[in-house]
Every structure is written in C-alpha cells, then in structure tokens.
C-alpha cells in the first residue's frame, strides 16, 4: 500500500468511525439547544441499531432498515418528550430510563426474533461495496481520495452538520429553538409555542441519534451485536459538550476522537523496538487520554444553553 492510499484509507476509516459519534452528538445538540437534556442517546442508538437490522433482515434492503430505525427513533423521542415536555419530568431520569430499558428490551427481542443471545445474522448493509458511494475520479488524490468510497450514512452526517448549523443560526426557526433553550419564559412572551418546539427538537434529536445507531449496525458492521452501542452514545454526549453545543463543534470533536482512535490503531501496527513494550491497554486508552488532553489545552469553559435541563412548566 503506498502512502497516498494509506492516508486516504485512514481518513476514510476516521470518518467511518466518527459518523456514529457525530450523529449522536448532533442529536444532543438539537435537543439541548431547545433545553432538553438527552442522555438517552446511547439507548436510542441501541434501539435503532437493532431495529435497523431487523428491518433490513425482513425486507432484504438496508433502506427499509433505515426507515425502521427512523421509526423507532420517533417512538423513543416521543416517549422522552412525553415524559419531559408534557409532564415536565426530570430529563436525566427519563434518559436513564430509556438507556436501562434499551438493555433489557433489545436483548429480549434478540432472543425472540433471531433466537440468539448477543448477535443478529448478517443483513444487507450500506457498507457493502455495492451500496457505497464511489467517486472514481478523485480516488488517487491525497486527502480528497478519502471521500471516494464513503457510505451514504457518512455523507449524510456531513450534510446534516451543515444543514443544522444553517438551521440553528441562520433561520428564524433556529433562533426560536435556541431562545427556547436559553429562556423559555421569554420565548413564550414572544408568542413562541415552547411546548411544540421542544417536542420537535426532542424527536428530531432522537432521529439523529437513531441514525448514529444505524451507522454502526448498517454502516460499519452488517449485523447487530449486543455490545452495541458500546458507549458511543456517551462519547457523542461528550463530543456535544466538547463542541460547545454547536453542530460544527460536535463535528470537530467527533473527528478528533475518531482520529485519535485511528492513530491508536496505526501505532499498534507500526510499533517497533521500545514501542512494542508498551502494553496494549495504553494504546486503547490513548484516544480518551488525548480527548482530556485536548480539552485541557485548547478549549475553555463550555457554557450550555441557559435553560438546558430545566423542566418547563407553562405559567
């Protein structure tokens, strides 16, 4: 493998790795800008990863799986919104409930539907070379070539980041969402329907997180494993905070984390001499240490939306 293709494939790998985290982080950005905590990202990813595979298994096409995943995202988002917006329930409690339920329900369904403990049979997925988006003419150009062989989900993650930035900061609707997150009572006096905006943001955020789950089970892997999402949702949560509750910030954070992960893998392979003596654990822990290091070095105090996490009760 020559240097260009190694570079490009590493970058592709980074983006593959970053996409699920980015989706989760964007889900969090969406929901928390409207003032609703969402620590259920992990659970939603798990639900969607499973339902996506289930849909693809039954229909034989990942596209139907995608629809199933979006569907479960809407269901879970509605549950979270019903608890936290309709009944002004504690948002952390609701999120934890979804996470805990995801563990039980999915294992249950896995056994019910696939008669297995821990994994599903392989299904058609977006990562297979037929379903990837090939852009042949940039294949051999350094850097650009990394974009020549991505899955549709990675492209969607990139587009979604840009769209969300535009929506949040360049449209009236985005301004309304942010005003609800900053000060719902002031927003209400301006005639904004706070409750409806919160419902919308929570459900949209949940759908984005659902895409994150599918990026795992239908994007990089072709099946569901019981370990999914294996903490990716929480890393997404961290990426959201790291990125200061903005779409591009979340993207930068996800990419930073993913590249640390890829560098770690490359180092493991390339290790020679003294580096061979370093135990595996240090390599595996490196991305997490680097993330803390990056936060110490670069980023200042993160300020969440002012009314983030506060239940809103109409006066």
């Amino acid at each position: 493998m020559d240097n260009t293709s190694l570079l490009n494939s590493s970058l592709t790998q980074t983006m593959d790795y970053a996409a699920p985290i980015l989706f989760a982080a964007l889900g969090g950005v969406m929901s928390e800008n409207a003032g609703v905590f969402n620590i259920a990202l992990e659970g939603i990813m798990r639900f969607a990863a499973f339902f996506g595979v289930w849909g693809a298994y039954i229909s034989g096409t990942p596209w139907i799986g995608l629809l199933w995943g979006i569907g479960i995202g809407i269901v879970i988002g509605s549950l979270h919104a019903y608890i936290t917006v309709k009944w002004a329930g504690d948002q952390i409690v609701s999120g934890v409930a979804i996470n805990v339920m995801s563990m039980g329900i999915i294992t249950y369904l896995l056994e019910l539907i696939f008669k297995t403990t821990g994994y599903s049979p392989p299904v058609p997925y977006f990562g297979s070379s037929v379903n990837r988006i090939h852009i042949v003419f940039i294949e051999n150009i350094p850097f650009l070539g990394a974009f020549s062989n991505l899955t549709i989900l990675v492209w969607f993650a990139i587009i979604l980041t840009v769209l969300m930035h535009f929506m949040l900061y360049r449209t009236v609707f985005g301004l309304r969402i942010r005003s609800v997150g900053e000060n719902p009572y002031a927003a209400e006096t301006l005639g904004i329907n706070v409750v409806r905006i919160k419902w919308f943001a929570v459900i949209m955020g949940s759908i984005f997180a659902a895409f994150g789950g599918m990026a795992l089970s239908l994007g990089t892997l072709s099946s569901f494993t019981n370990a999914m999402a294996n903490g990716k949702g929480f890393i997404g949560l961290a990426a959201m905070i790291f990125g200061k509750w903005t779409p591009f910030g979340a993207m930068a954070a996800s990419l930073l984390f993913a590249s640390a992960q890829v560098i770690q893998l490359l180092l493991q392979v390339a290790a020679s001499g003294f580096a061979k003596l370093i135990p595996l654990g240090f390599y595996l822990a490196l991305p997490y240490i680097l993330t803390i290091g990056a936060l110490i070095g670069v980023v200042g105090r993160a300020v969440p939306p002012a009314a983030d996490g506060e239940p809103y009760k109409k006066e």
């Binding site: 608890i83 002004a88 409930a97 979804i98 805990v100 039980g104 294992t107 249950y108 896995l110 403990t117």
Partner: peptide
C-alpha cells in the same frame, strides 16, 4: 424469558419515576 428481563422492569420503574408529575 431472557434473564435481562429484570432490567426492562428496572428501566420502566425509572421511567415512571420520571413521570412522577403524572
């Protein structure tokens, strides 16, 4: 019934705790 069933109950309890206003 899979042995993870209790965590469904656990999650449901937490969900209803979140719904305590109701």
């Amino acid at each position: 019934i899979p042995k993870t069933f209790p965590s469904i109950i656990e999650g449901l309890i937490v969900a209803f705790i979140a719904l305590q206003e109701l």
